[in-house]
Simulated scan of single mutants.
Amino acid sequence: MHAVFLGFVMSMIMAHAPVILPAVLRRPLPYHPGLALAAWLLHGSSPCA
């Protein structure tokens, strides 16, 4: 249960970071395709992939 919850929370944080960080820092975050790398790695490492 803990691993599933932790995985869900971490994936949601990484997926929403490009939206949350600019709002918190009050600075624009330029888009770069490399920003999605962490989310791709998370999705690729899941046992259902």
Rank of each mutant, 00 (worst) to 15 (best):
L41H: 14
V9C: 08
I13A: 15
H43T: 11
S45M: 13
L25P: 03
G34E: 12
P47V: 08
P47R: 15
M12L: 13
P28F: 04
A39W: 00
P18D: 02
V4Q: 10
I13S: 11
A17V: 09
P18W: 01
A49K: 13
G34V: 14
I20F: 09
A15Q: 00
L41Y: 13
C48G: 06
Y31P: 02
H16L: 13
M14G: 00
W40D: 10
S46R: 10
R26C: 12
V9H: 04
V19N: 14
P33L: 11
S45Q: 08
G44P: 02
A38Y: 03
F8A: 11
P47N: 08
R26Q: 14
W40Q: 11
P47W: 11
V9Y: 07
I20S: 02
A49I: 02
V4N: 07
M10L: 12
P30W: 02
L42I: 07
Y31G: 02
F8G: 04
A15M: 04
F5H: 08
V24T: 12
L29G: 00
P33F: 14
H16G: 05
L35P: 00
G34L: 15
A3Y: 03
A36R: 03
A36D: 10
S46T: 10
P33M: 14
P33E: 13
M10P: 00
P47F: 10
S46P: 02
A38W: 01
M12H: 06
V24M: 14
A36C: 10
G34D: 09
F8V: 15
V4S: 13
P22H: 06
I20Q: 02
V4F: 11
L37N: 13
M12I: 06
P30N: 03
